[in-house]
């Protein structure tokens, strides 16, 4: 009930990308946003994180309009990992992760002991502890992605919005990330993530939301959502649905 959209339209340059969406994010779950390129997944995520202002309709956080909430307070509730990240010059990994604590520090940004504990923990969880003293600009794409993720996690918010968090990561780090998301979920966090890999979404997420051309086509558990008809309709894909032999979740195989 905490995060919901009401007749929400968002876009760029007067052109709506997300069209009149009514959506309530189920609390306490890992939710995947799926859909073909340009369907408005990222735009919807950005609107829910208040990066974009609605052209029409509203986003509500705990029953109140998102745009009426103080910036700093909201940053303690919602954290977004954007899809593309700048490469900041001359900033060390540990300093970047520490910036994740800025919604909690005083205006001067001084890090106290409690902050440091969270920073160290998140660096450990994302496996970047040994990179702490390196410059962010010197890392590989996958390493950098994990550093940004650690910063977002250091924000320690009950809701996490991730836009393709697995970008640039090799398979083993992708799997590690999905396990980490489950661990955070079990600690009580609600996680909304855009994913490209349908099978990954079906295996690791509780709730799938499928979008096409700015509208929500269907949502629900992986079993109920993933059907041959849906894959044809949304992705124009001829595929069969099988059961994953290990996780027992649905899995699509392209014909």
């Amino acid at each position: 009930m905490s995060l919901s959209t009401h007749n929400l339209s968002v876009g760029y340059h007067d052109k709506a990308i997300v069209k009149q969406v009514d959506l309530t994010i189920p609390e306490g779950k890992i939710i995947a946003l799926l859909g073909p390129n340009g369907c408005g997944k990222s735009t919807l995520l950005k609107a829910m994180a208040r990066i974009l202002s609605p052209m029409e309709g509203q986003v509500h956080w705990q029953g109140k309009n998102l745009h009426g909430i103080a910036s700093k307070k909201l940053a303690q509730q919602l954290a977004l990992l954007p899809q593309t990240q700048p490469i900041p010059e001359g900033i060390k990994v540990k300093d970047l992760v520490a910036y994740g604590r800025s919604p909690y520090t005083g205006f001067w940004g001084r890090i106290n002991k409690d902050d440091q504990v969270i920073i160290d923990k998140m660096m450990e969880e994302t496996g970047i502890t040994e990179l702490a003293d390196q410059l962010v600009s010197e890392l590989s794409g996958g390493q950098r992605q994990r550093v940004w993720l650690a910063m977002t996690l250091a924000q320690d918010t009950p809701y996490l919005l991730l836009d393709e968090p697995t970008t640039y990561m090799d398979l083993s780090h992708q799997v590690e990330l999905m396990h980490l998301l489950r661990k955070l979920n079990l600690q009580g966090k609600t996680i909304i993530t855009v994913l490209h890999d349908i099978n990954q979404a079906a295996r690791y997420c509780d709730h799938l939301i499928v979008m096409k051309q700015g509208e929500i086509i269907t949502q629900g558990s992986p079993e109920s959502v993933l059907t041959q008809k849906l894959l044809k309709k949304v992705f124009s894909l001829d595929a069969q649905i099988h059961q994953d032999p290990i996780a027992k979740t649905p899995m699509c195989v392209v014909e």
Binding site: S71, A79, L80
Partner: peptide
């Protein structure tokens, strides 16, 4: 320095 989106996200 972290970009507009990240800055906004950090409050």
């Amino acid at each position: 320095q972290l970009g507009d989106d990240n800055a906004r996200n950090l409050g």
